[in-house]
Amino acid sequence: MAIGPQQAMRAAIAAPGIPRDADGPVFREPWEARAFAMALALHEAGVFTWKEWAEALGAEIKRAQAKGDPDTGETYYQHWLATLEALVAAKGVTTLDNLQRYRDAWDHAADRTPHGKPIELTPGDFE
């Protein structure tokens, strides 16, 4: 799977309103970059086209604004993440239930891991 600067630049051009500078996208926190990179990987895997992505993200942002999102850029990747979740479910990659199950498992893993230790998911976290 090739995900590199060129793919990132194409994604940045395709995504409406993405925080970016001349070299490509800019991020505020690590998770934003991970969410960005996951969209790149899914696109490269053929799960969606950038046109589909842009439409879905645009719709998500509109929905958020209608609910009073300040649209200052701070929440941009929140919308990005919500779009990712919705699209992977819509495309049959996984289900929203499964996403919730993994989210709960990570929560469990985080709770049992002392600070400073890497948090890792184990089968026991799903019980």
Partner: peptide, 11 residues
């Protein structure tokens, strides 16, 4: 972060 990790694990 929980949601990002959930998604990444599945993918």
């Amino acid at each position: 972060e929980l949601r990002v990790r959930a998604l990444e694990s599945i993918l």
